[in-house]
């Protein structure tokens, strides 16, 4: 069985930073999100899980409007997300995102990947951006790879660069969409370790993952999604030991079996 004891240090949870009210999203006639209500506090760590196709990616991609929602409200740090394009750019700066497939810029070095947005989007000087980037690359344990190109790194290293690239924008919220799913098993932990450290630093995090060990260790709340709905929300202890919904139980049974084996 899984050991379920929150081991990340206690932390401050503040005011509401993400508010989703009755959010709906469809592709054509196909409803992907069916009335999502969710409110996340500053400093909170949320893990989202659920079967493939349940709308997890769509949900977090709506948060920084990589996907537009059609109904309902999304309010990030006091700003409604359906504002004009300008408003969206300024919110995106504050919301970092890490993708399953890394999406590093292949034509730039690791250091350039980390400094491009601070320089071009925030208007920070090159020297300052590089200094920050080097500090953050140290935080994700790859300071020595700064001059390499993404293709020369392992998957785990690339994903840590992707995390660093987002952190260089000093975001208020970090979104992760299955950050370890594309990795070889031996590289999963190096990425999860970085994420645990990030959680310890007090970052507000929404993480789509099936790494239940990570969820039990880090999450304040675990969300189970199925068919475009939030089926269950609970702190990890409750979520894993006493799931309420039948659908959650079934899903947990499947996931925990494969992860134990």
């Amino acid at each position: 069985m899984l050991e379920i004891a929150p081991s990340v240090t206690n932390h401050q949870i503040g005011d509401v930073i993400i508010e989703m009210r009755k959010v709906e999203k469809s592709y054509g006639s196909y409803k992907v999100l069916r009335g999502i209500n969710l409110s996340v506090s500053r400093g909170e760590r949320i893990v989202i899980c659920g079967p493939s196709g349940s709308g997890k990616s769509t949900l977090i991609r709506c948060l920084n409007q990589l996907e537009e929602h059609q109904a309902g409200e999304i309010i990030i740090d006091g700003t409604p997300m359906s504002a004009g394009a300008r408003g969206i750019d300024s919110i995106r700066r504050e919301v970092g995102m890490v993708f399953q497939s890394f999406n590093l810029f292949p034509h730039l070095t690791v250091l350039e990947n980390c400094t491009l947005a601070p320089i071009r989007v925030r208007g920070i000087s090159k020297a300052e951006a590089e200094a920050t980037a080097r500090t953050i690359l140290k935080r994700v344990h790859i300071p020595e790879q700064a001059q390499k190109y993404p293709i020369q790194l392992s998957g785990g290293q690339q994903q840590r660069v992707a995390i660093a690239r987002s952190l260089c924008m000093s975001p208020k919220i970090m979104l992760f969409d299955e950050p370890t799913s594309a990795l070889d098993p031996e590289m999963v932990n190096e990425v999860l370790d970085v994420m645990v450290e990030l959680a310890e630093s007090g970052m507000t995090m929404l993480v789509v993952t099936h790494e239940m060990g990570f969820a039990s260790k880090v999450a304040d709340r675990v969300i189970f999604m199925d068919a475009g709905e939030i089926v269950e929300v609970a702190p990890p202890t409750e979520f894993f030991n006493a799931p309420q919904s039948q659908r959650t139980k079934k899903f947990l049974g499947q996931v925990l079996r494969t992860q134990a084996g």
């Binding site: 394009a85 750019d89 300024s90 995106r92 970092g96 999406n103 989007v121 690239r165």
Partner: peptide, 19 residues
């Protein structure tokens, strides 16, 4: 995915294209 990454970092259309 390159566009997703650029947008998520706050790039506007012109600088996303350019850089």
């Amino acid at each position: 995915g390159q566009l997703d990454a650029a947008k998520s970092l706050g790039f506007r259309w012109t600088s996303m294209q350019r850089f």
